[in-house]
Design a protein around this nucleic acid. Structure first.
Lengths: 134, 134
DNA sequence: GTAAGTACTATACTAAAGTATAGTGCCATA
DNA sequence: TATGGCACTATACTTTAGTATAGTACTTAC
């Protein structure tokens, strides 16, 4: 269906040699999948922008402040390769390109809901500020 | 409670200037929080290893294959700063240090469950291989 | 006193992720 | 003819994440 480039980044959540006592391996893999699917600075915003419906490249550019076209293009290709976004070329004149979430992409909402729950609770509860990374 | 270093990495999901039409800003922030809390190559494995209970530095080293002490130490500090892991020094002789999930850390399980659901469905459904990043 | 374990830190490096800026080819309208 | 929109790509660069390896300071056991 879609050929995956099998190059593994040393930053990706690794799939091999998982040896945690209590978490079944397949679960860890699935979480890793979910994580790899929307990490990076921009993917979440792209998916969020597409939840209300399909959008064109330039619309996404406008709706996602500070993203540059190189990043938008790259992340869209990435999301497409992973079956989360579908690229549709309308052969009208002039040609227009529309991006849309796949069913799998829309299905992420449930996951986001639980992340929202955790994030809001965590903010209210234990954190005066926001989550950071060093 | 805990002072946060407010340096922003250009890789973090940005909190400012969100302008997406339909997703309320606070939700996007919360998802971003959740995401920033466990991205990177190792955090998920550290949290996973701590779910069954507290562990010492060297135990974590053994249970997480291929992690090196620099990374383990750095990620633990990071998780601690974000209120996900608690570091406890036992003043026995010799001193031992134990790491444990905070209630907020344990609460991540619900989030992981929904990620597992999505990941497994996505694998079965639309992906012949696994999620990749370029 | 030497070896081995615990819990790390320091230094130096590689590699990936993200930014900035300019440019391409196409078409439509003024 | 030129101006501007659309959907990108190319090139060069900076910043951050992760790796590799060695070393520290302490303690206990042999």
């Amino acid at each position: 269906m879609m050929q995956q480039i099998e190059k593994r980044s040393h930053r990706e959540v690794p799939n091999e040699e998982i040896n945690m006592k209590t978490c079944p391996k397949q679960y860890v893999l699935a979480v890793g999948d979910a994580l790899n699917a929307f990490t990076g600075k921009w993917k979440l915003f792209i998916i969020g922008a597409l939840i209300p419906g399909k959008q064109r490249f330039s619309e996404l550019e406008k709706n996602i402040p500070k993203i540059n076209p190189r990043m938008l293009s790259k992340e869209l290709r990435d999301l497409e390769a992973n079956g989360i976004v579908k690229r549709k070329v309308n052969d009208s004149l002039p040609v227009s390109v529309e991006y849309e979430l796949t069913p799998s992409g829309y299905a992420m909402r449930l996951m986001f809901d639980s992340m929202i729950d955790w994030g809001m609770q965590h903010r209210a509860w234990s954190m005066p500020g926001k989550i950071t990374r060093q």
